[in-house]
């Protein structure tokens, strides 16, 4: 059962990055869209993510519940040492969720829309940035139990070039996912071209920030290269991701929207797999080398069993409903709402 729980933990993180990430990415794309096209982009975007965004963000809740029920020490450790970035991420989550709904459900469309938009853009950028910073900090080994000053304990645990690099990488990844996703949401050739262009820019940004992450990891002495290229699984995953990226760019002009979405999702899966596989079972890396691991720092088996069953039973209810939701709202016609 403990592997069931671990599988759900990675699955929920993955789905949050892919689905929730595409939602954040939609805001990032809108931010980088010229004023002339903003309204049209917003329209496509609203039709695409309006019905499903709440469900996409549930994966974060599942992740956090698994963490605090099954790995309370890891959850408590993150809560203490990464308090500040978690707080910023929460502010981003509040701002993004509410601004997105408020701008749509404001019965009068006036200057308030600018305010909602500004908040929506800023939070769509900040939230994945800090999500990445948190992920980077968890593995970068700057959490120092021996530290005493406020700055060393609560700030330099996460504020370093590597973590920021991971943050930027996640932002670019979200933008890329969203652009690829939105290509399939419009029939207008001009819009399609614009989204393809966006996907290209975001892809370049992701590669650039990825390179930056490797460089900072090397400077910082984080064995990122070893983690990813040092294991067979990691190597296969990276090669698979690269090949699928090439296929995606070949198919992007003509291909089936579902296939290119799958390919983009596949790439993210491979990246997380490569990293997760090498890193497992460690979860949080601590300066003195006593890492918190998913095997040694889990709750008792009674709890793990109960949680595992709850997740398995929950899945029976959630998955069919979720698929039907995606299926039902995948049509491109304008909804009446």
């Amino acid at each position: 059962m403990e592997y069931v729980v671990i599988a759900y933990l990675f699955l929920s993180i993955l789905l949050y990055v892919v689905l929730g990430g595409a939602d954040f990415g939609a805001g990032i794309i809108e931010l980088f869209t010229s004023a002339r096209n903003k309204n049209r982009t917003r329209d496509t975007l609203y039709r695409a993510i309006g019905p499903i965004w709440e469900a996409n963000h549930m994966w974060l809740i599942i992740t956090i519940v698994i963490l605090f029920v099954a790995y309370p020490l890891i959850y408590a450790e993150m809560s203490v040492y990464l308090h500040i970035p978690l707080l910023v991420m929460l502010f981003g989550i509040i701002a993004r969720g509410t601004a997105f709904v408020f701008r749509h459900y404001d019965a009068v469309k006036d200057d308030m829309q600018h305010l909602y938009n500004r908040i929506y853009f800023a939070s769509s950028f900040i939230t994945p940035l800090f999500l990445g910073i948190i992920a980077g900090s968890v593995i970068s080994g700057h959490i120092d139990h021996a530290a005493t000053s406020f700055a060393d304990v609560y700030i330099f645990s996460w504020l370093n070039w590597f973590s920021i690099g991971v943050g930027l990488f996640v932002v670019a990844l979200c933008g890329f996912l969203a652009s690829v996703y939105l290509i399939g949401e419009t029939d207008n050739p001009e819009d399609r071209r614009r989204f393809i262009n966006k996907a290209r820019h975001m892809n370049i940004a992701a590669v650039a920030s990825g390179v930056y992450v490797f460089i900072t990891a090397w400077i910082d002495g984080i064995p990122l290269v070893n983690w990813i290229f040092g294991t067979t699984i990691g190597l296969i995953a990276v090669i698979a991701a690269s090949i699928s990226l090439v296929v995606l760019w070949i198919l992007i002009y003509s291909g089936n929207a579902i296939i290119i979405r799958m390919l983009a999702g596949f790439q993210v899966t491979m990246i997380l797999l490569a990293l997760g596989y090498a890193h497992f079972p460690d979860f949080i890396v601590i300066t003195n080398g006593t890492n918190l691991t998913l095997m040694d720092h889990r709750a008792t088996m009674q709890t793990i069993n109960a949680l595992g069953w709850a997740l398995l039973i929950g899945t029976i209810f959630i998955i069919p409903a979720l698929f039907y939701l995606y299926y039902k709202f995948k049509h491109k016609e304008y909804p009446h709402e």
Binding site: I52, E54, T303, A310, F317
Partner: peptide, 19 residues
Amino acid sequence: GMPFSLEGTAFFIEAIALG
């Protein structure tokens, strides 16, 4: 944590149904 893990499912279904 048990009620929270079940609540995750309930909340998820609520979000889907609301969509």
